[in-house]
Nucleic acid binder design. Structure first.
Length: 853
RNA sequence: GCCGAUGUGGCGAAAUGGCAGACGCAACGGACUUAAAAUCCGUUGGGCUUAAACGCCCGUGCCGGUUCGAGUCCGGCCAUCGGCACCA
C-alpha cells in the first residue's frame, strides 16, 4: 500500500497548509479588547469533550466528534463569526498513576509524553483549534483555579429560601460546617485490606476484588462530599430549555430521580422515639402491616430487643460482607430479621412489627419503609416469606402482574396498584390521587407527617486516595478543617517516588511528611480530588486560559459563554454533564458567571466499531490508528470518510474500502483542476476556463450550495458530502469547467477537506486572480432559488396509488391541466377501463393519483 | 423488570405523508493499455412473463389501523444495542 501511487499529492500539500495556518495564526480567536478582535461579528463557541491523553493514543473514534466540530467551526468562520474552538487535556487520571507505580516514572512525565503524541495526531488531521488556548488540567496554572473553585464551593451554602448558593457568611445558624456545599462525612466504601486501597463498586465482584480476588469489606471512611443534592430540583428544571437530545435529558432526570410523596412518623411502642418513613403512596397507610429498617440504620441498635439482639447482629454482619453488586442482585431472594420491636401505625393505630432487611437502602429516603404487602411487589414477597399480615386497602379492576421468589419458588402474582381506597376510614371511596392528597392533609394536621420530595441523587463523594490529582486546599487543626488562603494556591502535590497506596487506607500523600505538616498545629488534607474536578470547568478556562488574576475574566466569560455546540460521547451523559452543570450553577449563584447553564446545544456522536462489527479493542485486534489511515489516504480523506460513514449520532462500523471511495472522490476534485502530463507531473488542467456555467450546471451548483449549507447546520455531514459528490460527478465529464463553479465547490468543500481545497484554491487564484485571494477570506456562497427551478418537470401518474406512467409537464401546470392530462393518459385509461373514477388527487409538481373503486 | 434508541439491497446508507434505495462500497460487463494498476463508461432489490423487455407482481423487522397515498402517522408484537435497576 505504501508504495502505491498517491491519488493526489496529499502527503505534500497537507503538511504545507498545516504549517501555513500555524504561521498565520489563522485560527487564533482574540478576546474582546485584544488586537484583531472584531466586536461587530457574532460569536460562536464550539467545543469538544477534551480527551484523557492515554498511552494508546487517539483511535478513530475520537476524531469523529472532533471532525464534526471542526467542520462547524470552519463553516462559522466563513459565516463571519468569531469562533472559539479550543482543545486541551484532561490530564489527571489513574492510568498515569498506575504506570508510575509499576515503573517509578513520575505521572507528570508520562502525561507530558502522551499529550505530545495526542497533539501530534490531532495536528496531522488538520483541526482548526486555537492552540494558543491549550490547557492541561494537571498544570498548576490550571488546577490553581480548580482548587480556588473548590474553596468557593466550600465557603458556600445552599439557602433554601432563595434556592441559591450563597456565601457561608449569610448563614445564621449555629454550625456553618453542617451546611457547607463541601463537607466531610463518614461514608461506607469498598475497602480491600490485601490491596490496601478503596475500590469502586465496579471493581468489586462477588465480594472480592476484581484484581487478585481478595476479600473486600464495606467500611466507613471519612470522605469529602459535595452537596449536589441541594441543586437536584434546579438540575431538573433548568435542563428543560436546553437544546439537548431528549434521551440524554431523560437519562439525567432519571438519574436525579425525583419522586413526590410524604414522610410519615411511626411511634415506637414503649419508647419515646419515632421512625420516619418516606412513601410515594401515603394513601396505602392503612395497609402498612409492618416496617423495615435498613441494616445500617442507627435506630436498629436502639430498638432491637434483647431476645433478638444476636439474630440481628448476625444478620447485619452477613449483610456488611456483601458488595453492593451482590446486595442489589434482583435474582436473589429477600432476607431479613425481626428486631423484636413494634411501632404504631398512625392511621389504624395497629401495632406493627419492625423488621430489618437489606432490600431497604440506607441511602434513599429515611432508610426505613412502611411495608404495604397488598400493593407492593417487594413488600408482598417479603411478607409472604416471613408470614406477615397482608391487608388490602385498594379496590378496583386494574391489576399489575409480576413474579416473586419465596423459598426458592417463583410465582406470578397480581396486585392492585391503583383504584379506590377501602378499609381506610379517613379516605374510603376516594380514588388514589385524591386519597393521597387527603391523607397528607390529615397527617400534617395531626403532626404525623408531611408532604415531601425525595431524590435518588446522592451527594457526590469527592475525595480519592490517589497521588495524581488536585490536593485539597484544606488543612486540619484540632480535628477541624479549614481552608488555606487563596494566596497559597496553587497547592502543588509533593514530590514522591513511591506512588503506591500506603496500605493503611491513608492516601499516598501521607508519605510526604514535610509537606503534610502545615504548621505546628495543623496538617494538610491527604486526599485528592477525583478526575471529574478538572473537567467540571475547563470550558470556562478556554474563554481566558492565561488569566492569572481570575479563573476566567469577566468580559471574556460574558462574551464567549454559553457553549453553542458541545459534542462528545454518551458515556458522559450523566456524570460529567451533571457535575459540570452543578459547579456552573454554584459559580453562577455566587456572581462569578453570567449564565446558569454551560452547554446550550449538546450532540452525542455514535461509537465507531471495528471492520468486524465489534467494538474496537486491543483484544480483537481491530483498532484503527488515524495516522495509518492518513499515511495511505491523507487527512482530508480521513476526515471526509469519518463524516461520510453515516449520521453523526449513530453507531457504525469502519470500512477501509469506504475510505478508498471517499479518497477517489477527493482525487476527482483534484483532477478537475489538475491533470498529469507525460512526465507524470501534475499541471494545471486546460479545461478550466473563465466561462459561464450552463443552465444545467447552475442547477447543480446551487442545489449543492443549498444542500451543503442546510446539512452543515443540521450536522448531517454524510448527505452534504453526497451532494458534493453529485456536483463533482456532473463536472468530471464536462469539456470545459467554469472557474466560478470550481470556486464555489472549493469553499463548500473547505470545512470538510481544508488542505485539498486550500491548495486548489491557491492554484486557481494564481491563474485567475480574485479579491480577496485567500479561500479563508471568501464569503460563504448563497444559493439562488431561480436556478433551482426547472421549467419542465417529471411527475408520476398513479392509479389507486400505484405509479402507472411518468410524464413531463410544465413546471407551472395547473391542477386542472394535470387532471385533464392524467385522465387522457393511455396507461391511466388502461387501468381505469370499465371502472368508475371516484376521485382525482393532484399534487402539483409531484403526482396525480386517480382513484377508482 | 423499567426507560431510551435502532430495524430499509450483498454492505455503509438516502428519502417536508407523495415516484423507496440518492451518494458510496462490493460485484459484474466494457473502454484505454503489450499487460496490470490507475482512470473513464455502463449494469446491479427480489420474483414472474418474455426473443427482449420500456410488461406484471412483491418489497423498508412482524401483525393490524388511519389515509386517495405510509419507510414516514397511530395501536400491538418481535429482535438488536445502550442506560438504570429492591429508589419505597
Amino acid at each position: 500500500m505504501s508504495d502505491r501511487r498517491k491519488p493526489y499529492p496529499f502527503d505534500l500539500i497537507e503538511p504545507k497548509w498545516q504549517t501555513l495556518w500555524e504561521e498565520r495564526r489563522l485560527f487564533h480567536a482574540p478576546n474582546p479588547g485584544e488586537p484583531g478582535f472584531d466586536p461587530a461579528r457574532p460569536k460562536y463557541y464550539v467545543l469538544d469533550m477534551f480527551p484523557y491523553p492515554s498511552g494508546a493514543g487517539l483511535h478513530v473514534g475520537h476524531p469523529e466528534g472532533y471532525t464534526a466540530t471542526d467542520i462547524v467551526a470552519r463553516y462559522r468562520r466563513f459565516r463571519g463569526c468569531n469562533v472559539l474552538h479550543p482543545m486541551g487535556w484532561d490530564a489527571f487520571g489513574l492510568p498515569a498513576e498506575q504506570y508510575a507505580i509499576r515503573t517509578g516514572q513520575h505521572p507528570e512525565i508520562t502525561t507530558r509524553e502522551n499529550i505530545a503524541h495526542f497533539k501530534k495526531q490531532l495536528k496531522r488531521i488538520g483541526f482548526s483549534y486555537d492552540w494558543e488556548r491549550e490547557i492541561t488540567t494537571s498544570d498548576p496554572a490550571y488546577f490553581r483555579w480548580t482548587q480556588w473553585i473548590f474553596l468557593q464551593i466550600y465557603n458556600s451554602w445552599f439557602n433554601p429560601e432563595t434556592r441559591r448558593a450563597e456565601p457561608i457568611a449569610t448563614y445564621s445558624g449555629p454550625d456553618p460546617n453542617s451546611v457547607r456545599l463541601a463537607y466531610v462525612a463518614e461514608v461506607p466504601v469498598n475497602w480491600c485490606p490485601e490491596l490496601g486501597t478503596v475500590l469502586a463498586n465496579e471493581e468489586v465482584i462477588d465480594g472480592k476484588s476484581e484484581v487478585g480476588g481478595f476479600p473486600v469489606v464495606r467500611r466507613p471512611m471519612r470522605q469529602w462530599m459535595l452537596r449536589i443534592t441541594a441543586f437536584a430540583e434546579r438540575l431538573i428544571d433548568e435542563l428543560e430549555p436546553l437544546d439537548w437530545p431528549e434521551g440524554i435529558k431523560l437519562l439525567q432526570r432519571n438519574w436525579i430521580g425525583k419522586s413526590e410523596g410524604a414522610e410519615v412518623q411511626f411511634e415506637i411502642a414503649g419508647k419515646d422515639e419515632t421512625i420516619a418513613v418516606f412513601t410515594t403512596r401515603p394513601d396505602t397507610l392503612y395497609g402498612a402491616t409492618y416496617m423495615v429498617l435498613a441494616p445500617e440504620n442507627p435506630l436498629v441498635d436502639r430498638l432491637t430487643t434483647n431476645e433478638q439482639r444476636e439474630a440481628v447482629a448476625n444478620y447485619r454482619a452477613q449483610v456488611s460482607a456483601k458488595s453492593d453488586l451482590e446486595r442489589t442482585d434482583l435474582a436473589k431472594e429477600k432476607t431479613g430479621v425481626f428486631s423484636g420491636a413494634y411501632a404504631t401505625n398512625p392511621a389504624s393505630g395497629e401495632q406493627v412489627p419492625i423488621w430489618i432487611a437489606d432490600y431497604v437502602l440506607m441511602g434513599y429516603g429515611t432508610g426505613a419503609i412502611m411495608g404495604v404487602p397488598a400493593h407492593d411487589f417487594r413488600d408482598y414477597e417479603f411478607a409472604l416469606k416471613y408470614e406477615l399480615p397482608i391487608l388490602e386497602v385498594i379496590a378496583g379492576d386494574e391489576t399489575r402482574t409480576d413474579e416473586i421468589l419465596v423459598n426458592g419458588v417463583r410465582t406470578g402474582i397480581e396486585l392492585r396498584l391503583d383504584g379506590v381506597a377501602i378499609h381506610s376510614p379517613l379516605i374510603d371511596g376516594l380514588p388514589t390521587a385524591d386519597a393521597k392528597r387527603k391523607i397528607i392533609v390529615w397527617l400534617e394536621e395531626q403532626g404525623h407527617g408531611h408532604r415531601t420530595i425525595n431524590y435518588k441523587l446522592r451527594d457526590w463523594l469527592f475525595s480519592r486516595q490517589r497521588y495524581w490529582g488536585e490536593p485539597f486546599p484544606v488543612v486540619w487543626r484540632e480535628g477541624r478543617h479549614e481552608a488555606i488562603p487563596d494566596s497559597e494556591l496553587p497547592l502543588v502535590p509533593p514530590p514522591l517516588d513511591d506512588f503506591k497506596p500506603t496500605g493503611t487506607g491513608e492516601p499516598p500523600l501521607a508519605r510526604a511528611h514535610d509537606w503534610v505538616r502545615y504548621s505546628e498545629a495543623a496538617t494538610r488534607e491527604l486526599n485528592t480530588m477525583p478526575q471529574w474536578a478538572g473537567s467540571c470547568w475547563y470550558y470556562l478556562r478556554f474563554c481566558d486560559p492565561r488569566n492569572t488574576e481570575r479563573f476566567v475574566g469577566k468580559e471574556a466569560e460574558r462574551y464567549w459563554m454559553n457553549v453553542d455546540l458541545y459534542v462528545g460521547g454518551t458515556e458522559h451523559a450523566v456524570l460529567h454533564l451533571l457535575y459540570a452543570r452543578f459547579w456552573h450553577k454554584v459559580l453562577f449563584d455566587l456572581g462569578h458567571l453570567s449564565t446558569n447553564e454551560p452547554f446550550q446545544r449538546l450532540v452525542n456522536q455514535g461509537i465507531i466499531l471495528g471492520e468486524d462489527g465489534r467494538k474496537m479493542s486491543k483484544r480483537w485486534g481491530n483498532v484503527i490508528d488515524p495516522l495509518d489511515v492518513i499515511a495511505d489516504y491523507g487527512a482530508d480523506a480521513f476526515r471526509c470518510y469519518e463524516m461520510f460513514m453515516g449520521p453523526l449520532e449513530q453507531m457504525k462500523p469502519w470500512s477501509m474500502t469506504g475510505v478508498e471511495g471517499v479518497s477517489r472522490f477527493l482525487a476527482r476534485v483534484w483532477r478537475l483542476v489538475m491533470e498529469e502530463n507525460q512526465a507524470g507531473e501534475w499541471v494545471f488542467a486546460p479545461a478550466v476556463a473563465e466561462i459561464e456555467p450552463t443552465r444545467a450546471q447552475l442547477k447543480v451548483i446551487h442545489a449543492a450550495i443549498k444542500k451543503v449549507t442546510q446539512d452543515i447546520e443540521a450536522l448531517s455531514f454524510n448527505t452534504a458530502i453526497a451532494q458534493m459528490m453529485i456536483f463533482v460527478n456532473a463536472f468530471t465529464t464536462a469539456e470545459a469547467v467554469p472557474v466560478t463553479a470550481l470556486r464555489t465547490l472549493l469553499v463548500l468543500l473547505n470545512p470538510f477537506a481544508p488542505h485539498l481545497s486550500s491548495e486548489l484554491w491557491e492554484t486557481l487564484a494564481s491563474r485567475f486572480p480574485i479579491a480577496p485571494n485567500e479561500i479563508t477570506d471568501q464569503p460563504w456562497p448563497e444559493y439562488q432559488a431561480e436556478f433551482l427551478i426547472e421549467h419542465e418537470i417529471e411527475i408520476a401518474l398513479q392509479v389507486n396509488g400505484k405509479v402507472r406512467d411518468r410524464i413531463t409537464v410544465a413546471n407551472d401546470a395547473s391542477s386542472e391541466e394535470l387532471e385533464k392530462i392524467a385522465r387522457a393518459n393511455e396507461r391511466v385509461r388502461e387501468f381505469t377501463a370499465n371502472q368508475t373514477i371516484r376521485k382525482v388527487v393532484v399534487i402539483p409538481q409531484k403526482l396525480v393519483n386517480v382513484v377508482v373503486n
